[in-house]
Design a binder for these strands. Structure first.
Lengths: 339, 339
DNA sequence: CTGAAAGCGCTTACAG
DNA sequence: CTGAAAGCGCTTACAG
């Protein structure tokens, strides 16, 4: 049953030529190496006929490349990241790369563990959502000439390739949307990490608020993973003690808990409140007639990430300028949502 | 900057011994090969000191193994699968394996494409949620002695390793739960695929219904991906023309659309209805005070999958009996839910 | 235009 | 107890 798969040597033997010739042809170097038209065809035809697949391990051992890309996100079970992963997967397979996903839980120690794990394992490149404190580690990767593209966040002090969205612009527009719909007391609920994408969202909110001479209303919740009930309690208390007619959740990590808190404690409130959630997650739209969602352009994000990554891998010798891609996101209101 | 990483040869040279000895020690065969205690220690210490990492490509080329496991699910962005993936990832890394995720979209053609893609790429083993028509392809993999473990579904006619949950039992208990809470007209909304896990859930429902002399109330919606509005319309019509005081959604693919349909068309109904959703997804619990969720034991599932997979890979020579693991799931009612 | 051969970093049968 | 050597399947400088 288990027949040995054909190697380049087998092809050479069958065609009474050398492995060199076969290898050149198969790698598209026939022209360059002046292999005869006839021989080239013969090799191509035969390889095709027996459905020759090169042994990637051997190729990798020889060339030092693995055709494996690591995609490190905060949590692969997060809806937004999972969607991106799905698209990246598709693009990668089309280009002959495999993708390994992993989750750093926004935790520096775990990020480092993972990087260490992959280190020296012939990973061709890394697409990373960096946890807050791994700037140095990213820098080290880059020093070793390993392709790295950051995503979702970046380090202002570090020159690197990255793909992010214009958070300030998105938050500004979303806040404007609320204001134009006559909401006046808009609360901004965020997580109290120093993460720059959160700060930018806050800035966007502030800009709109000041532009219309409204009052800031900010709740920054300390970051603690896995404590939904804790978040709910804080939000409940905040709502209880502040006047507001709209809420802007700066991340979908908060939206679910927040809406649940409202639903449990102020059910009547839910239908009146203006609501914005960051990171489009279809299900949130069901909660309230007036909720709007900021939707990040997933296809564009994935395409840009992979375009940069592949170009880095395949032109590792030619130095490149840093690719800094900043994409716009879209605000979906309930009416304009197509399911 | 870029220093060559140490190889076994370097260690041998440094220690004035041979690569053979080093290799034996590093592979834990020191005892077996009667390497002296002293030499063993020396090698271990030095390898440790320079943080030696074997080149997995070379290892793989030599041994024919890649330490890569493929985890093929229906859609990695589906919450349940993503959670499982997350756990599998953890276990795999601890054991020195890498995991490649991919999504077959429950589509046979795509499943085959993916299998073809990975074929001959030195994948050590496959964990697969099979799409309906790939029984033959699975069988072919198995014939080639490639470790395969099915998950979530299996083919009744195919002897294979699998990990599933007891769908009939879960559906039976959930229906019983409704009945005991005085619901009498319980609708069962499912997808009309021949998938055995759906049929088993239906059986469980029927068993409970008959046991209490109630009437069956079944809506089987034709499977079409990505047509939420279509599903919503069907469910709305069905509710309009049938009497019911409870609904059992056979898969979370339907729950969201179903609840939305109800919310839009019969809002008052939502708080009175008894509701069951298959596949625990926390957010669904927010919709209605009376919704209960069947929660599959994710850790147990992942642990069993990886246990079987690793044992298959590492004992590929010793034939094994087929591992058929059937796990029980839990019914979470709102009150008993801890966030 | 084409081929013989070295070498990537391992494992392991074989010989002492 | 330990070492020299073959070989996994490739790529590519080198030689003709």
């Amino acid at each position: 049953m288990k027949k040995k798969r054909p190697s380049i040597k087998d092809i050479a033997a069958e065609l009474k030529t050398s492995v060199t010739t076969v290898s050149f042809v198969l790698n598209g170097k026939a022209k360059e190496m002046k292999i005869s038209e006839e021989m080239t065809q013969k090799v191509l035809d035969y390889a095709n006929k027996i459905n020759y697949q090169p042994n990637q391990l051997a190729q990798g051992l020889r060339t030092g490349r693995s055709n494996i890309i690591v995609f490190m996100v905060e949590d692969i079970s997060n809806y937004f990241f999972a969607r991106i992963a799905r698209i990246i997967e598709d693009i990668a397979y089309k280009k002959g790369y495999k993708v390994i996903f992993c989750s750093n839980e926004n935790n520096d120690e775990r990020s480092r563990d993972l990087l260490r794990l992959f280190k020296e394992r012939q990973i061709d490149g890394y697409i990373i959502i960096p946890s807050p404190g791994i700037e140095k580690d990213i820098q080290n990767l880059m020093k070793e000439k390993i392709p790295v593209v950051l995503f979702d966040r970046y380090f202002p002090g570090l020159e690197s390739h990255y793909v992010v969205i214009d958070n300030k612009d998105a938050a500004y527009n979303a806040t404007l949307h609320l204001i134009k719909n006559k909401f006046k007391n808009i609360a901004f609920i965020t997580i109290d990490t120093g993460q720059n994408q959160m700060l930018e969202r806050l800035e966007g909110y502030k800009k709109a608020i000041h532009q219309y001479d409204l009052t800031e209303n900010i709740l920054a919740i300390p970051y603690r993973p896995d404590t939904v009930s804790y978040v709910k309690a804080i939000i409940r208390d905040y709502i209880m003690h502040h006047d507001m007619d709209a809420i802007f959740f700066a991340t979908n990590y908060l939206t679910q808990s927040g809406l649940e808190a409202i639903k449990e404690n102020f059910p009547h409130f839910l239908t009146e409140l203006g609501l914005i959630t960051f990171d489009d997650h279809e299900i949130f739209k069901i909660y309230s007639p007036s909720i709007s969602a900021i939707s990040q352009p997933r296809f564009e994000i994935a395409e840009n990430l992979m375009r940069i990554m592949i170009s880095l891998i395949e032109n590792s010798n030619t130095p490149q300028n840093f690719n800094k891609v900043i994409l716009k996101s879209t605000l979906f209101s309930r009416e304009s949502t197509k399911f």
